[in-house]
């Protein structure tokens, strides 16, 4: 019984961390169709921002939840103005540009911090479930993951800004004809996506050490989650994160983390063969 609780918490944790990793990309790719290959680096920058802030004496929660998204959001804004805005609708060019950007960011961080592992301790103590000890920080990540998803859902569905953003993504000409400026909407959406990545990077930073190449570990998982999820930002990300998180954790628990990752990749291949448009291409297709 206790072990069942442990397994459920581990699965929820895996789902939440996948959702967090993918959230920023879901907004940028899912809504704007911009393939941002520098997504992993945005997460990495969020992590470094949080660690640097904590070491500078800022409260760890402020560092993770406020400083990291603001800094990475600002970086995203600069990137959008300097690079991305010239490339909307040119998918291959965007890929090339953002890939170059990811190399640039990795190189810059290496120059500043060195190619070493840095980290901070998790701020929450462990707790007990029957005979088992669990990491308290996992619960924080579960809460954060679902709050972020709920936040995106509410923003897109129930706010005027969300409505305009969705409208502009569906038909920018129509949005433009109604007096909105699509360029500005794109800019804001990309910035929000980058800020979400920064937030996720900050939250995940205490759990693992960070190196300048950490982004590479995230980017594949993020793309698999978002593409398998399909067009709907929240429903897609949540459904594919749930599927892959469950598969990974169950296989990891019964064998090793290597097989956990293998199982997730096999599941993704089969899923995309059966549902090329992603999960929300067939199910929950009217959801946000």
């Amino acid at each position: 019984m206790d072990f069942a609780v442990v397994v459920i918490v581990e699965i929820l944790y895996a789902v939440a961390s996948l959702a967090l990793i993918a959230a920023g990309l879901a907004v940028v790719f899912g809504m704007m169709r911009v393939i941002n290959l520098a997504h992993g680096e945005f997460l990495m920058l969020g992590g470094y921002t949080a660690i640097v802030s904590v070491k500078a004496g800022i409260n760890i929660y402020v560092a993770m939840l406020v400083v990291a998204p603001i800094v990475v959001g600002a970086i995203g804004l600069i990137v959008e103005r300097l690079v991305i805005r010239f490339l909307y609708g040119r998918m291959l060019d965007t890929m090339l540009a953002t890939w170059g950007l990811s190399l640039l960011l990795t190189g810059l961080v290496t120059m500043i911090f060195g190619n070493t592992t840095t980290g901070i301790s998790t701020p929450i103590a462990g707790y007990r479930v029957g005979a088992y000890q669990l990491s308290g920080y996992n619960l924080f990540i579960i809460a954060a993951g679902f709050l972020v998803m709920a936040g995106i859902l509410l923003a897109l569905r129930y706010t005027r800004a969300g409505l305009i953003a969705r409208g502009a993504m569906q038909s920018s000409d129509m949005a433009s004809g109604l007096g909105h400026n699509p360029q500005r909407i794109y800019m804001i959406t990309f910035t929000v996506g980058a800020a979400l990545s920064g937030l996720a990077g900050g939250i995940l930073a205490p759990l693992t050490g960070l190196t300048p190449t950490t982004g590479g570990l995230y980017v594949a998982k993020a793309f698999i989650t978002v593409i398998s999820g399909g067009a709907a930002v929240v429903a897609g990300t949540l459904s594919s994160a749930t599927l892959f998180g469950t598969i990974t954790q169950v296989v990891t628990l019964s064998s090793t983390p290597v097989w956990g990752d293998v199982a997730m990749l096999i599941a993704a291949v089969i899923l995309l063969r059966l549902l090329p448009q992603g999960i929300t291409g067939r199910f929950f297709s009217r959801q946000v």
Binding site: V6, E10, T208, P257
Partner: peptide
């Protein structure tokens, strides 16, 4: 590999 949550649960089991 940097995420050992599942492993820690396995060890306890």
């Amino acid at each position: 590999v940097s995420d050992f949550g599942a492993t820690i649960a396995k060890i306890q089991a």
